[in-house]
Design a protein around this nucleic acid. Structure first.
Lengths: 127, 127
DNA sequence: CTATATGTTATATACTAAATATAACATATA
DNA sequence: TATATGTTATATTTAGTATATAACATATAG
């Protein structure tokens, strides 16, 4: 699984890692039960600090997407947390901003949904 | 237009304002050409500093969603920036994270798109 | 011309988050 | 006994956030 860090970005490094790891797991590049790279190794590969990687791992552990197995190290959770109502409401709120911008710029409802569909294709179907 | 600030949130106040203003404009609560509340008045109403409001307005001006009219003050842009390829790519990247989480938690493609559709309803159609 | 109101700019300060660095710890494996 | 794992503990530096006070250029109302 390929991870790239943009040090010049305004988005914190640990946030970039969290996002890319979530996408990578969703794409199935790492399967449930499989271990991630150790914090020290990934930190060295990316040229960043150990604690920055640990912070990203900690967030994903808190979210229930990772488990500290203590045998293999940090692994992908075997059973992800359910998509309950709280979760759907949180995601809906996160989608509101970007979707409002598409409406603001004159995109039709169909165009917006097509954009969402394409973004989903990047995760499940294609590239 | 109702603006609410959560001071205990980890999201910066000016970011909350940017997001809520974008949603409000998309919902048509303020129409193109119409003025927003003056920075000092809005700051007082929300119990925050003048510059925090000014920063939010500045971001939206930079994005092309607001114009400093100098007669009516800060107004909604008459012609919003186009939804070009760069924009669609940026929004697609912003949608990737939340959508990946829905996939991660086992939501089907139809469920994900339904969630997007509901989020769009909050902007154009209904509530 | 004189106030008043608009966004903006200029400094300054306090606080928090982010990233780094070094060290140590508990646990599990070889 | 070593080695490797995530984790915790301190400490430091840097950048972002929010605040405060003051002033400026411009436009409107009286």
């Amino acid at each position: 699984m390929i991870l790239k860090i943009a040090v010049e970005s305004e988005e914190p490094i640990y946030r970039q890692l969290v996002e890319q790891l979530i996408v990578g797991i969703a794409r199935g590049e790492i399967k449930p039960g499989e271990p991630l790279a150790p914090v020290r190794q990934l930190a060295q590969d990316l040229g960043i600090n150990l604690h920055t990687v640990a912070k990203a791992y900690g967030v994903l552990r808190q979210e229930g997407y990772l488990v500290n197995n203590r045998q293999k190290g940090m692994t992908v959770a075997l059973s992800p947390p359910p998509a309950d109502e709280d979760f759907r409401q949180r995601i809906g709120a996160e989608l509101a901003g970007p979707l409002a911008e598409t409406v603001l710029r004159g995109m039709s409802r169909e165009e917006c949904l097509a954009l969402c569909s394409e973004a989903l294709d990047e995760l499940v179907g294609g590239a």
